[in-house]
Every structure is written in C-alpha cells, then in structure tokens.
Design a protein around this nucleic acid. Structure first.
Ligand code: NAD
Ligand code: NAD
Lengths: 211, 211
DNA sequence: TCGTTTATGTGAATCATTATACAATAAAAA
DNA sequence: TTTTTATTGTATAATGATTCACATAAACGA
C-alpha cells in the first residue's frame, strides 16, 4: 500500500464515521469518492486491492467498511498516547484542542525547558521539564511526539526524542527532519508540517493556475 | 509542472537561501538532493524541465538559481498580504509567529465574531469583526486567508471568504474544503491542514512499516 | 418471468513519475 | 598538452498510479 492510498483510507474512514452518525447504512463508491475528492474508480480499486467487497448494485455496508478499514488503520479501543515537546503558542493550542479524542489520540503530557512554562499548573495536561522525558515515555508507552520547539532547538530535541525511544514525530518547525535509521536499521516515521510552505504553494498555484 | 514538483521547487528555494546565507556560491545537484530529501537525478530533471542550466562539472550558481526559482514561484519584493479568520488558539499562534516575514508573507489582520476577541487591543495585528471583511480584503488586495474557525463554522466562513473575493485558503479545520468553480469558472486554491490525519498516518506507518 | 437498470470488481490501457545510463563537457591533474 | 575525474543534461527504461471499459451480479419493474 502506498502513501497516497493511506491518506485516502484515513479519509474514507472519517467520512464513513460521519455517514454512520447521520444514520446511513450503505454507501456507493461514487458517494465516497465525491466526499473524499477522488474518482469512483479509485475507491473501488482501493477496496479491491484491500480485498474489501460490497454488494453488486447494493454498494458497501458502512459498518462493515468501518470495521475493515479500522483494522487496516490499526484502530484499537485504547487511545494512542502522545506527548508534546515545546509548549509555546502552537504546542499549547494543540494541548487544548479537543478534536483528537474522537480519533483515539490522547495527549498525556507536555515537555518544556522553561521553568516558567512547566511549573504553571493551569494546563489541560501536565507539563514536565525535559529531564522527565525518558521516564514518562517509557512508563506510558508513548511512541509518537509532536515537536513544537523553536527552529534553533529542533535538531537537538529531535535527537533527544529518538534517544528516549520515540518512533514517530510530527514536526512543526520549518526545519525538515529526515528519518535516519537507528542501530537496528529501523527508521522513525516523520511528518513535517510546514505552514509557510503551504502558503507559498497557494501563492504559486494562484499565479500559475493549472489549465 | 505538477504538484510534487512545486513542493520540491519551494524546498529548493528555501535550501538555496540558507546556503547563500552561509556564504556558499555554488551547489551540486546531489547537495540539493540530499537537503531536499530527493534523488540527484530528479533535481537535474526538474531544472532541465524548467530550462535552468548549470555548468558542467561546476554545479549550479546559487544566486542564479534563487533568481530563477524565485521568478517561477512568483516572488516579488512586495510581501504578500494575508488575513486570519477565526482568532482562537491556533489563529493567534499564527498571528504571533514571526517566521512568515522572511518568506515574504505578511499577516495584516485577523477577523472574529466574538467581541471579546476583536475588541482586545493587545495583538500583533488588528482583529476586526467579520463585518469589515470585504472592506479590508479589497483595500489591502488580500488574495489568501488562513481559516481557523471552529469546525461548525467552517463552511459558512469559507463561503463568506469566497464572496469577499478571497482566492486561496489554508484551512485548519478537519472539514476538508473542496474548490468549487465560481461564476467565471475559476476555482479557488485550497490547502487543508489536518493535524489529526497526520497523526493517524504516523500511527499507520508505525504499525505497517514499508519494506 | 424476463428484460432493464445500476453498481461492483478487475484486467488492460493510459498516463505520470522516477530511476538508469551515458554522452557531453569542463575542470583538474599529470 | 593530454589524461583523468566530476558533473551536467537528457534519452530511454522501469515502475507505479489512475482511468477505462466492460463482464458480472443483484435489484427492480413490467
Ligand atoms: N506559531 C506559529 O504559528 C508557527 C507557524 C509555523 C511554524 N511554527 C514553528 O513551530 C515551532 C513552535 O512555534 P511557537 O510559535 O509555538 O514558538 P514558541 O516560542 O511560542 O514556543 C516554543 C516553546 O518551546 C520551548 N523550548 C525551547 N527550547 C526547548 C527545548 N530544547 N526543549 C523543549 N522545549 C523547548 C520554549 O520554552 C517555548 O515554550 C517553531 O519551530 C516555529 O518555527 C510556528
Ligand atoms: N487547536 C488545535 O490544536 C487544532 C488542531 C487541529 C485542528 N484545529 C482546528 O482549527 C480550528 C480552530 O481551532 P482553535 O483551537 O483555534 O479553536 P478556538 O475555539 O480556540 O478558536 C476559534 C475562534 O473562531 C472564532 N469564530 C467562531 N465562529 C466564527 C465565525 N463564524 N467567523 C469568524 N470567527 C469565528 C471564535 O470566536 C474563536 O475565537 C478548528 O476548526 C479546529 O478544529 C485546531
């Protein structure tokens, strides 16, 4: 399964949950396609490759699809624990965001180097000094961290996360982090969110519209 | 030029600016490739397609490349004005971010429906009530808006932006906005940033590593 | 009951992207 | 000066993704 396909699958999964909550039971390939912004052919192809089958003329059963896709996406009943490293403006906005819970993602702690930040007690989750990183990561079985430290601290913090046993990072700094294989040849999974880059792409596309 | 290529070009552009500020004058395809996380062949292919040429065995002239790519990316001396609609936690974090200026992007105003938010006077840029949207957009020639309103307000706010003449939107809500052609057949450029989706993809990739 | 309609499932065709391979060329070394 | 080396530029091959097209099956309607 390729990267684009994973994105589509996660999209389908969300859309299906929405459709279910609206009380629907069946969905056609072209409905899903419209909602996900892809072609109906590719929806059918995706499901075909995943060996998920519908009923001829009847479409696909939503509950069945949700179960099948959930399994593929590794959805469990237990939420996934994550941490936030760098509790500045962006980090704290993420901490207060309540849109992760429905997706089974739970922020269990923040980390910061600034005592003014980590000694405050008014956060939705505790903020610890960086010295407690390893302890919290291992005791709560945290695999994934959101990295929202200043640009200058990005590489060091990333290294620190790797050493603490973190396996996946969502990086908000404009420094593009790249996965480097560890001693056992395992590469961390890194996604870089670069907001300025997104804006630049929009400007580009406005200036040179396709067709 | 396709979408992936635009992303690469914006990457090259940033990297080149960094290299220049380090005092370098020449760069080889494989240096850029390493920094951008792509293969050297694709760097050469990209430049070849863009009709940007280097010196055999001498690599590419950094200043020349920056000029050429800047032109392609529509870089001007004037910064691009943008606005932020929905000045909550995320919106305000973006307002305070000073990493846009170096990229020629300037946030000129925020908009919100909540009088408690727009009457405060402590922001880096003014926050106006939504009623002043059209006026500010047209008087400052704003083409692009960042949309950071709650999920429930997303579609309405988006429509409002379209009516006000906004042509590009960076949307942070989990509702995926889709471009719909206007009366003249022009489609807005929309980029959706979905943080929960990014996290889900990381979990997926951790569970099913490639190769 | 028997055509008609509607949607799935998938092999083949098309299209797009990336990698390979190497000739061309300029710099450096001998 | 000649040879070696390093790097570009691109033609071609390989790979991968998407769309097309249609056989297939189920539901519907007459
Ligand atoms: N704010 C935005 O809108 C925005 C937009 C795009 C990118 N970013 C990027 O996101 C990152 C965070 O931005 P921000 O605006 O929240 O910055 P911020 O300065 O508000 O917050 C950074 C936080 O990290 C902490 N910190 C510093 N060094 C640390 C270290 N070594 N380990 C742990 N914590 C450390 C600081 O104490 C601070 O609390 C930056 O890299 C920035 O470039 C931010
Ligand atoms: N905070 C996060 O970490 C995070 C993460 C992912 C996605 N998001 C999404 O980003 C968006 C903003 O999140 P947030 O945490 O900043 O929310 P928030 O509630 O802090 O801020 C929303 C702001 O929008 C204003 N608003 C409401 N309706 C409006 C309207 N019709 N027009 C203009 N302004 C309006 C509110 O007054 C408020 O100031 C949401 O859609 C959220 O789902 C946020």
């Amino acid at each position: 399964m390729n990267h684009d396909m994973i994105i589509r699958i996660t999209r389908y999964y969300r859309i299906l949950n929405r459709l279910r909550s609206l009380g629907l039971e069946k969905v056609f390939a072209h409905n899903l396609a419209d909602a996900a912004g892809v072609s109906a052919a590719i929806v059918r192809k995706d499901f075909s490759l995943l060996e998920i089958y519908g009923q001829k003329r009847g479409g696909y059963d939503i509950l069945f699809l949700i179960a099948a896709l959930g399994k593929i996406l590794g959805k469990t009943d237990e939420p996934q624990n994550i941490i936030i490293v760098g509790c500045g403006r962006i980090g704290r906005a993420l901490m207060h965001y309540n849109g992760f819970e429905p997706d089974g993602i739970r922020i269990i702690a923040g980390f910061d180097t600034d005592p003014l930040v980590y000694s405050e007690n008014v956060h939705p989750v505790p903020i610890y000094p960086m010295s407690r990183l390893e302890e919290v990561v291992s005791s709560h079985q945290v695999d994934v961290a959101i990295l929202t430290v200043p640009e200058s601290a990005t590489s060091d913090s990333f290294q620190r996360l790797m050493n603490a046993g973190i396996k996946g990072v969502l990086n908000f700094s404009p420094i593009t982090l790249k996965p480097v294989a560890d001693a056992e040849g395992l590469k961390p999974v890194i996604h870089n969110v670069n907001i300025a880059l997104e804006l630049e792409q929009i400007f580009y596309e406005l200036q040179f519209p396709k067709t």
